[in-house]
Design a protein around this nucleic acid. Structure first.
Lengths: 171, 171
DNA sequence: CCTATAAAGTTCAGGCTTAAAGCAACGGGT
DNA sequence: ACCCGTTGCTTTAAGCCTGAACTTTATAGG
């Protein structure tokens, strides 16, 4: 997933002469992947070193911080794009840490509403400030307009991906 | 990590009036993340449904397919950007499946060389063809020049991230 | 040769993640 | 009221992943 792994095209994997291969799309995907991996690993390390928290827990708290009214577990699962059962365990651990609060949802005895506790919110806000600065630092070498273009193209890629997914009958 | 979670800026999280916050970098990161997640989940599903293989195993085999001479475990760990111990287990399972082959490295009794077996190579090549087509399908809505720009900007982001990481004394 | 340091892998505990199966509650149709 | 498909969540088994401690081998300096 590293450039060094992709760029040195040897004789076997030469791209040029083939009429309709798709090596460049593949390279784009690999670069997207490695870019994400690089940043994520660093953020994970800093969250651990500075706040002794894992990235998944931080991400979950970030979602909750945006919705003070609380969220249902299934909603969290959609936002974080992970499986149902994953959220159950993650919330369990955060509740045990005293950062989250589960309560029955009104009008639906199946569902639960999850919120940040006061401590959870305080704790998250402190971390979020640093986190935001780290991200800004990492993307600092890009100009505002480059960031804008990147944002737009990633949006387009995302839409295209979603279209490809529903076409293939994921539902 | 979904746009729906990011775009609806309510009163609390308004961006405009603040002079030097970094919400746009954050949104860029979130979009990169969700874009990767969307594609990865779909690829994982297709690999599973069509070939009964996991994404990490496929990725590892992809690295080995590029270097017929074989790779050391540490090299794999760097390329895939995952930890050492992770590779050990992944290789164990692939060897057990008969897709990989471990052998002692020449001139260094600590190291091992890992290669695809004949079956592993055959198996990978079959999967790789489909995989490449899927990626092309997913990125199909982007024009060649859009892909080129995206590639360049992601490269720049990657370099910037690497710089930020080594600056902070990761060594 | 001897020692110190570094490097390559492994092991371990703990946590993250998925897919699949299961349970309870909802809601529409009859 | 009853059935039935759906939804919200939990549970389980298996696999993925990390960080840290550890073993073995290599390498450099005396």
């Amino acid at each position: 997933m590293n450039d060094a792994a992709v760029l040195p095209l040897d004789a076997e994997t030469k791209v040029i002469e083939r009429p309709s291969d798709h090596k460049d799309e593949l390279r784009l995907w690999l670069r997207l992947f490695s870019c994400k991996m690089l940043i994520e690993n660093e953020i994970r390390r800093r969250l651990r070193d500075n706040f002794e928290i894992t990235l998944p827990r931080f991400d979950l708290m970030a979602q909750l911080d945006k919705t003070p009214a609380g969220m249902k577990l299934g909603e969290l699962s959609q936002r974080l794009m992970v499986s149902n059962g994953n959220i159950t365990g993650l919330v369990d651990r955060l509740v045990e840490q005293g950062l989250l609060d589960r309560q029955p949802a009104p009008n639906d005895r199946r569902a639960q509403l999850v919120k940040l506790t006061a401590e959870g919110r305080r704790s998250f806000r402190a971390m979020a400030a640093s986190h935001e600065a780290w991200i800004a630092e990492i993307f600092g070498d890009l100009t505002a307009s480059e960031r804008e273009v990147l944002m737009r193209l990633l949006g387009k890629a995302k839409d295209a991906a979603r279209a490809a997914i529903t076409d293939s009958g994921k539902g």
